[in-house]
């Protein structure tokens, strides 16, 4: 793999890691409120997938790092966490709802499994429009127990849709161990009768990148969807308010030994690594300053965006 790409992946993972550190810090300082699902530990999956896939992406509520690596600015994401008007969703969305159709990023969805049927529909649109690309939908192992997931694998297969299903298997559905609630520990088992499945080390950014690239190529062949299961592990609780008491210190130690940043770092030039670390700190500091300085949304615009401007004329 070429050096420039590896450096880009490392930079994006490090930016994501420090973004999440800053988000956590600002949550405890009271600048961020509500839900906050940190991606610390899972950067290889988020960055590898977003950098590799060409097409439209639908993700979950744990999407800061994905939005960043897809090309959304750290400033706009941090400002959204602060609920400010320069946030990517102008303070209407918050941590779980980041959207940028310009770069094919459609959330940011806070209903577990709720976005999967939307991705199926978008894949239908891409096929109908004879587009060369399709869609990627990212979801957790917990979502594979939802009815909508099973409906989606059936429809995507029967319609031969260009759709990559990417399961982020961190082995916990919020705080419940996957074996407690799922018939299988590997979720690909649920899909094998429908489409090809691939398992990848979700803690290895190069492996994720390659797997998603290949999956992206596969869906262009018109043979239908593909399922990629990335085995991963989050370093934090499900959300900021989750004390993570359901995992032993031993389990956490093993998990943290798989740190995707530490895995890639030795393969890179030391001078680059030092330079990029300084750069990331500057980027994140700037994002936090930007978020602080951005104004609150205007209360006069409470009704804005519910409908189009044309629709709003009727609604009020």
């Amino acid at each position: 793999m070429d050096t420039a790409l590896m450096e880009d992946l490392y930079y994006s993972m490090l930016l994501g890691r420090h973004f999440e550190y800053a988000a956590k810090e600002n949550y405890f300082q009271g600048n961020i409120s509500g839900f906050l699902h940190l991606d610390i530990g899972q950067e290889a999956l988020s960055v590898g997938a977003m950098k590799a896939f060409e097409g439209d992406v639908f993700t979950t509520y744990r999407e800061h790092v994905m939005a960043l690596s897809r090309g959304m600015s750290a400033n706009a994401i941090m400002a959204e966490l602060f609920g400010k008007v320069d946030g990517v969703s102008k303070g209407r969305g918050g941590s779980m709802h980041m959207f940028s159709p310009k770069i094919g990023f459609y959330g940011g969805d806070a209903i577990v499994g709720g976005h999967i049927p939307n991705a199926v529909g978008c894949a239908y649109a891409r096929k109908y429009q004879n587009k060369k690309t399709g869609c990627l939908v990212v979801f957790g192992d917990g979502a594979t127990n939802c009815g909508g997931f099973f409906e989606s694998i059936n429809i995507a297969t029967s319609q031969k849709l260009p759709l990559v299903f990417l399961c982020e298997n961190n082995k916990y559905a919020i705080g419940t161990k996957i074996e407690t609630v799922s018939a299988f520990s590997k979720q690909a088992k649920k899909v094998e009768a429908y489409m090809p499945t691939v398992e990848v080390d979700g803690m290895d950014v190069l492996a994720v990148y390659k797997a998603i690239k290949k999956a992206g190529e596969y869906i262009k062949e018109g043979k239908g969807p593909i399922f990629v299961e990335a085995m991963t592990c989050r370093f934090e609780g499900h959300s900021i308010s989750d004390a993570n008491k359901y995992r032993s210190s031993e389990e956490m130690k093993k998990c943290k030994e798989l740190d995707p940043l530490l895995k890639l770092k030795p393969l890179l030039d030391k001078v680059f690594v030092e330079k990029i670390e300084a750069q990331v700190i500057r980027d994140i500091t700037e994002a936090v300053n930007f978020a602080h300085e951005s104004p609150e949304p205007s209360l006069a615009e409470l009704n804005k965006y519910i409908f189009t401007d044309e629709g709003l004329k009727h609604a009020l």
Binding site: S89, R92, F99, T308
Partner: peptide, 8 residues
């Protein structure tokens, strides 16, 4: 549409 500030 609302959560995306009208982008969707």
């Amino acid at each position: 549409p609302f959560m995306s500030a009208g982008k969707i």
